[in-house]
Structure formats: C-alpha cells, structure tokens
C-alpha cells in the first residue's frame, strides 16, 4: 500500500502538465518583451507624447516623421463605427433569437452566424473591395468608397457574430423564473424582455460588446483593403483612413530590420497591444464581478 514508483510517475505527469500550462504565460511575456525590445529604440528619436500625439506619419520623409495620431484616430473612427453597427444590431439579433424566434429558426440562424464567424478576414476584405465598395460608391455618389464608412460596415459585419453569440448566451442564462414572475404580474413579453431579461443580462451584453470592439480594433486585412489607407486625420466618415493595424501590415515589408521605421512599427504594436490588453482586463473584471456575485447567491 506504500507509495512507490507509480506515485513518482503521477507527480511527474502533473508537473509536466503544469509546465505546459505555463507556456501561455511565457508567450504573453515574450510578446510583450519583443514588442518593447524591437520598438524601444524609436523613443530615443521621438518622445512618447510626440509619437502618440504627433500628427504627421511620414516614414519616407527626410528626416522621417513618426506621429501616430492619424493612425490612432483612424483606428478609433473605424472601431467606433463598427462598434455602433455590431453592438446595436448584434444585441437586437440576440434578443430576437433568444426570446422570440422559434427553435428551428434559432438553430439555423446560429449555424449561419457561426459560419460567418469562420470566414477569413481577407475574404471579407476582398468582398468589401470588389462588391461592397462599388455599390456604396454608386449609391452615395462618392468619388471613392474606400473610406472609414465602408471599413466600418465591413468591420461591423465581421464583429457581429462575436456580439450575437456571446449576447445570446448571456440572455439564455437569465433564469426562467424571472421571466415567469414578470409575466405573472401582467407584463407583456415585450416589457419583460426589455425591463427584466436585458437588464439581468447586462454584464454579459457588456462583455459581448467589449469583445466585439476588441475584435474590430485588432482586425487588419479587411481594413487594409477597404479603408483607403490615407495617413491623414479624417474630417468626415467618408474620408479615407489608415488604422494602426493596417499601417503595420502595409509598411513592414519595406522596412530595414532594426531601422527607425521598423522600430516605429513595433511602437505601433505596443500601442495596439496596450489598447487590447486594457479592453481584456476590463472585460475580465466585469465577468469576474458577475460570476462571484452569482456564486454568492
């Protein structure tokens, strides 16, 4: 009955799996380390405020200028537009699917949405470029439809599946008793949905929105293909813009390893990483708070 070789083997497996599990932490630290290591050199040429608030991004000028504000603005404008589209429509669809739609419609719609989520972003970009942009150009009579508006629509469509599926889960998790209690008090289903179900699921809906925004701000290929790529601060939503992600993708090919431009692109990577890191932490805190609340009840 004594512990022997088998016990040692058991512990070995446990520690081995523990080491495997630490890889994720290691990867995250490595990503952080490499962004800083490759990008740090930039800041001996440009100050951090000069980088973030500088209004001119001219990597080929003499001397080159690295003001990332046009790119940051580009990302914010496009992400805001996409967020408005994805969150409002996404939550609407989720409410319809969770509360009203018959089971068969719901299952089909969920399968379709899952399929849409699986379409690669370069395909969305390609379709945006070849199908949607010409359509918008004709309809709105624009000189070119490769602008923040079109990019917002494409990104909004891409973020939609994330918002819908997480929102739907959140609405689904609202206990049936809440609905029944409200209906038993004489409320209509419509009132019950908006006064009881949606408010009860609000932290889940918030998380869905945050993740949708995170998806949109990190998206690269589609915006690179449809946003127009001008490194100027836009004055209207029909101006062409370039996002942080698109700039990295578009310019990395031309840089010299270790050069100033190369470092500047890693600097953009740091900005992007910080934004998404912030979004993830906030989402996690929102989630943790609700789940601990649920655990206590």
């Amino acid at each position: 009955m004594d512990k022997g070789l088998a016990g040692i083997y058991e512990n070995l497996v446990k520690y081995l799996l523990g080491i495997v599990a630490v890889t994720s932490v290691l990867i995250l630290l490595l990503i952080f380390y490499f962004l800083i290591r490759e990008g740090a050199g930039l800041f001996s040429h440009v100050s951090l405020p000069g980088f973030i608030f500088g209004t001119e991004w001219l990597p080929d000028a003499e001397p080159p200028r690295f003001g990332a504000l046009p790119l940051i603005t580009g990302s914010l404008v496009v992400t805001t537009g996409a967020g408005i589209i994805a969150i409002s429509i996404g939550i609407g669809i989720a409410v319809f699917l969770a509360e009203v739609a018959p089971r068969s419609v719901r299952e089909v719609a969920k399968a379709v949405i899952e399929l849409l989520a699986g379409i690669p972003s370069v395909v969305y970009g390609f379709l945006g470029l070849t199908v949607l942009a010409p359509l918008i150009k004709d309809m709105l009579n624009l000189p070119s439809a490769l602008c923040a508006f079109t990019a917002s629509i494409v990104l909004g469509i891409m973020a939609l599946p994330t918002v819908v599926s997480i929102s739907e889960d959140a609405l689904d998790a609202v206990p049936r008793e809440y609905r029944e209690a409200s209906l038993a008090l004489g409320a209509t289903k419509w009132e019950t949905t908006w006064r009881i179900v949606v408010p009860s699921a609000r932290s889940g809906l918030l998380a869905a929105s945050m993740l949708g925004l995170g998806r949109a701000i990190g998206e690269t290929m589609a915006v690179l293909m449809v946003a127009g790529n001008a490194t100027l601060i836009p004055h209207s939503i029909f101006d062409p813009v370039r996002t942080i992600t698109a700039d990295i993708a578009a310019e990395m090919g031309e840089t010299v390893h270790g050069g100033l431009h190369y470092q500047a692109l890693f600097g953009l990577g740091i900005v992007l990483f910080s934004i998404t890191f912030f979004i993830n932490m906030v989402t996690d805190i929102v989630f943790a708070r609700t789940s601990s609340k649920r655990g206590a009840s």
């Binding site: 009955m1 004594d2 512990k3 022997g4 088998a6 016990g7």
Partner: peptide
C-alpha cells in the same frame, strides 16, 4: 489494524482494497 491516513499510505492502493 493499520491507519489508512498514515502519510505513507497510497490512497490509490487503498481504494483497490
């Protein structure tokens, strides 16, 4: 007659019995 919570006892072997 032997204590099964003795630290030397392997719970796996115990559960076989």
């Amino acid at each position: 007659g032997k204590n099964i919570y003795d630290p030397r006892v392997d719970p796996v072997a115990l559960r076989k019995k």
